[in-house]
Design a binder for these strands. Structure first.
Lengths: 201, 201
DNA sequence: GCTTTTCCAAGTCAGTTGTATTGAGAATAA
DNA sequence: TTATTCTCAATACAACTGACTTGGAAAAGC
């Protein structure tokens, strides 16, 4: 009846997605044609089309894959702490992991921005691009609430507002890091300064 | 000898740039072909090429024109104050004018972002995209310094850092306003909250 | 009047795009 | 073995891209 697959479809799709990122990082998402991606992945156009029936499908897959990897990286970083990290540690390390402070992270952010821009004009992608924001905001707000409960954050602070403020700050810092209008150390200092005023001893 | 121009070249170029914005806002900068722009401007492709010898030249002109208009809008808004505006007023009104809070401003921001992404991969555009940042930062820092001098801002605040923080916040808020992950009122409230803690009575 | 310059419409060009089709090779199940 | 399904390379295709050329119309200077 059903013939066992000889190749791992998901593995192939991931390899193609990674090739797409490399192109998107260097030349932008719109500059990545199917032929370019296939060449970068070392396969033929026909083979690529065998794994993705349309360009849109490839883009969506690559975006979800990217988001999954980022989430995993943050989780691993938080688990790297010896003891249970404080709310401030969680916020700081999460933001630091999201910022484009090294080359690998820079690539991820460039791809993410390429998706963001396309999402502004593309119905299908917009859903995928937006879906992560509320979850992140709720996560940050929970940390602020925990900080208040531990007496580390003034109780007059509104957790939801502080969360959104932090997300916006992260995003803005990302922009200017990518433009090289501000350096990594400065970005880290700005983040720490902001957290210093949120977490009053 | 020299025959007077029968049409105002700059006026034509501005009209073409505005057509480009309309397309870039709706479909992105990469989705704007010369034929599309010409059609949107109500002229032929040949005519458009008569005013811009290359697509790149058109893009750069439209970007500089956009920046000039934004600066002018901010200047006009600040002049609209009855008396001399306080440093806090200047910061608040400037940021509010930069945020995509209405449809016109939304268009401008969408175009600006389209340029930003292209600048990440395009040598020529990068210079034009970066050149405004230091000036804006210095302007914000001056306002913070004035706030300190008037005793409205705690003297422990570092003007340059606060300026960059405010720029990054503006940028982040812009992103989430465009994605409709946060509403105009909320963005204004977040900005005011941030300024509240910067300007301590 | 005539010449010169500006202006602009139509068409051509080579190149690239995403998609569709065709058919051959390979591996498994019967 | 034979039949079936998976895998994938090659090609074709219509649409679109930016750049370029040609030719003529309109207005100003002589």
């Amino acid at each position: 009846m059903s013939v066992p697959k000889r190749v791992d479809h998901e593995e192939r799709r991931r390899a193609i997605a990674e090739a797409l990122w490399r192109i998107a990082c260097a030349r932008g998402l719109d500059g990545a044609s199917l032929r370019d991606v296939a060449a970068e992945a070392g396969i033929s156009l026909g083979q690529l089309q065998h794994y993705f029936s349309s360009k849109d499908e490839m883009l969506v897959f690559a975006l979800k894959y990217l988001g999954g990897l980022a989430e995993e990286r943050i989780r691993a970083r938080l688990l790297g702490f010896a003891g249970p990290p404080s709310p401030r540690d969680v916020l700081r390390e999460t933001v630091m992991e999201m910022l484009p402070l090294d080359d690998a992270s820079r690539t991820g952010n460039l791809v993410q921005i390429a998706y963001f821009v396309r999402a502004l004009h593309d119905e299908r992608l917009r859903e995928h691009a937006k879906e992560g924001v509320p979850a992140l905001r709720a996560f940050f707000a929970d940390q602020v609430r925990a900080g208040i409960a531990r007496g580390e954050v003034d109780s007059s602070r509104a957790p939801e507002a502080e969360a959104m403020l932090l997300i916006a700050l992260t995003d803005g810092l990302t922009t200017y890091l990518l433009l090289e209008a501000c350096g990594p150390e400065e970005a880290a200092a700005l983040l720490d300064g902001h957290l210093d005023r949120l977490f009053t001893p």
